[in-house]
């Protein structure tokens, strides 16, 4: 069972995306069903900030996000929300997380968490990191 409608994509779209981007294949394969394994989740729970701030600060940011957004307190919910941002228009290839983050900034989908201006997508990544670490 797919966790959210946003994650369900039809076969035609899926094939089209795979043809557009080989790089997206692995991600989309994982996203085609909500049953991502732990390895996939850890992949999504790897915000760019981790290298700069370290695990403790990223965990703190993630926990803060979880407190601010009760609806996203489950790993499944976070995975779904992040994955939804990777799916663009049907004719476009899927975004990488990095592209989704950049697009969030471009479109003003930013949040302040512990004073950090973050893309919504990466705030969710931090939250997922915190959940998986906990």
């Amino acid at each position: 069972m797919c966790p959210t409608p946003a994650l369900a994509i039809d076969r035609r779209t899926f094939i089209g995306r795979c043809a557009t981007s080989g790089a997206a294949l692995l991600a989309l394969t994982a996203l085609a069903c909500g049953g991502r394994n732990v390895g996939d989740r850890r992949e999504l729970a790897n915000p760019l900030l981790l290298g700069a701030l370290g695990a403790a600060r990223v965990t703190a940011i993630g926990k803060r996000w979880l407190r601010l957004t009760p609806a996203e307190r489950s790993a499944d919910g976070l995975v779904a929300a992040i994955a939804a941002r990777l799916n663009g228009a049907p004719w476009a290839r899927a975004r990488t997380v990095e592209e989704a983050v950049a697009d969030d900034f471009e479109q003003g989908r930013t949040v302040m968490v512990d004073g950090w201006m973050l893309a919504v997508t990466e705030a969710r990544q931090c939250a997922l990191f915190a959940l998986l670490a906990g």
């Binding site: 700069a52 950049a102 969030d104 900034f105 302040m112 004073g115 950090w116 201006m117 973050l118 893309a119």
Partner: peptide, 14 residues
């Protein structure tokens, strides 16, 4: 913060 994020330079905390 927005520009550093958008351009992939870094993240800003205020």
């Amino acid at each position: 913060g927005r520009e550093f994020g958008r351009l992939g330079i870094g993240r800003v905390q205020m």
